[in-house]
Amino acid sequence: MAEKHVLFTFNHAPYGSIWYNEGLRAVVGVTSGIDEHTVDVVYVGDGVYFTLKGVERTDSAKYLGTLAKGGYKLKAERESLEARGIDPSELAEDVEVISRADVVALVDRADATIDF
């Protein structure tokens, strides 16, 4: 089977709903199969609230651990952060800030996209 590069976007703020965590479970599932897909994990819109350093990660720690071991970083869109008054210094250490233009470049690079 052909391996693919999949762009996952996270669009919902954490808690109150389960997208933040079930999306990560799907990311790990997609990377772990025999097809060996690769992924980008990008937080946009209200999704960027997950990347704040104070966010509890009890549920998602195992998925995030797996992704970190695979060399993946979480990416947060700068324009979405700015629109919410979030300074990069407020973000968790494993988060990389990228521009909207960078996200579009990731769209171009992806073979498939999945939104949570």
Binding site: D35, H37, A112
Partner: peptide, 18 residues
């Protein structure tokens, strides 16, 4: 099934809609 089945669907599909 499970998420490995979804990974296979990702592999097999020419386009994917969520």
């Amino acid at each position: 099934g499970g998420l490995p089945d979804f990974a296979e669907i990702v592999a097999e599909s020419d386009s994917l809609i969520t």
